[in-house]
């Protein structure tokens, strides 16, 4: 399905990011259209996490521009609190709040930040929990859940803010193999519903199944940008070829 003529939701122009003097992101260009799923691939340390974190204002950047919904996210006047409500992010280590129950974790943002009606949010949360198969764990504490369950809750927590885009950073990397599937299924479901997503993952099969486009980064530069089928069967660059070889025995 080609979504290139959908409206552009997120545009990254010539993004530069440095830690001290080390360049980590070196002139990244990317356009994400509404409903599009971008999977970001690349060797360890190439800057994938950093890229996502820049989009969410967790990292400052040294050059370039990021436009979200037509508004720039650069400079001191960005209202990050407002923007972050529209950008859902899920981390590798779930990062649920350990002192709150599942439902409290989910309600915190919608009620305290978005000031929505408790009843309405509760209904939405219940629906979402049902969808990820965890409606019976509402009142559990995070420590009482498995890794896969925690990660699904973390996804629900982000979704309940009604974000316009979801960022996933290696959300299955910390999971036992048998739990990876349950989390990936949730993300696949989101893709079917037309959620705009940027996904960093090391699950190649999943990447191929879910992606509209693959963004391959190496040493902070966009190395390759193509449709998944083409990327996996016929990578244009040698770096991408080498990268893919690692995943084949």
């Amino acid at each position: 399905m080609n979504k290139e003529n959908h409206q552009v939701l997120l545009e990254i122009k010539d993004l530069h990011k440095e830690y001290d003097t080390r360049t980590v992101l070196d002139g990244i260009h990317l356009r994400v259209h509404k409903g599009e799923v971008i999977v970001v691939l690349g060797p360890s340390g190439c800057g994938k996490s950093t890229l996502l974190r820049c989009l969410n204002g967790l990292e400052s950047i040294q050059g370039g521009d990021i436009q979200f919904d037509g508004e720039s996210l650069i400079g001191p006047n960005v209202d990050w609190q407002k923007t972050r409500q529209k950008i859902g992010m899920v981390f590798q280590n779930y990062e649920l709040f350990p002192h709150m129950t599942v439902i409290e974790n989910i309600l915190l943002g919608p009620i305290k930040v978005q000031k929505r009606e408790k009843k309405e949010v509760m209904d939405q949360a219940t629906q979402l929990l049902e969808k990820v198969g965890l409606s019976d764990r509402k009142d559990s504490y995070p420590r009482q859940l498995s890794g896969g369950q925690k990660q699904r809750i973390a996804i629900v927590r982000a979704l309940c803010m009604n974000p316009e885009i979801m960022l996933f950073d290696e959300v299955t990397a910390a999971l036992d193999p048998e739990m990876v599937r349950e989390v990936l299924d949730v993300i696949l479901g989101l893709a079917k519903q037309g959620m705009t997503m940027m996904i960093v993952t090391h699950e190649m099969g999943f990447a191929q199944a879910v992606a509209d486009r693959i963004l391959f980064i190496d040493e902070g530069k966009v190395c390759e940008m193509s449709e998944p089928k083409e990327f996996f069967t016929n990578p244009k660059t040698e770096r991408a070829q080498q990268f893919l070889n690692i995943f084949q025995f």
């Binding site: 969410n56 204002g57 967790l58 990050w80 609190q81 407002k82 972050r84 409500q85 950008i87 859902g88 992010m89 981390f91 280590n93 990062e95 649920l96 709040f97 915190l108 943002g109 305290k112 930040v113 978005q114 927590r157 982000a158 803010m161």
Partner: peptide, 15 residues
């Protein structure tokens, strides 16, 4: 990471 997770759901510093 807990702090970042809080920020990413839009909490203000005080929240």
């Amino acid at each position: 990471t807990q702090i970042e997770s809080g920020l990413s759901i839009g909490l203000s510093q005080m929240q």
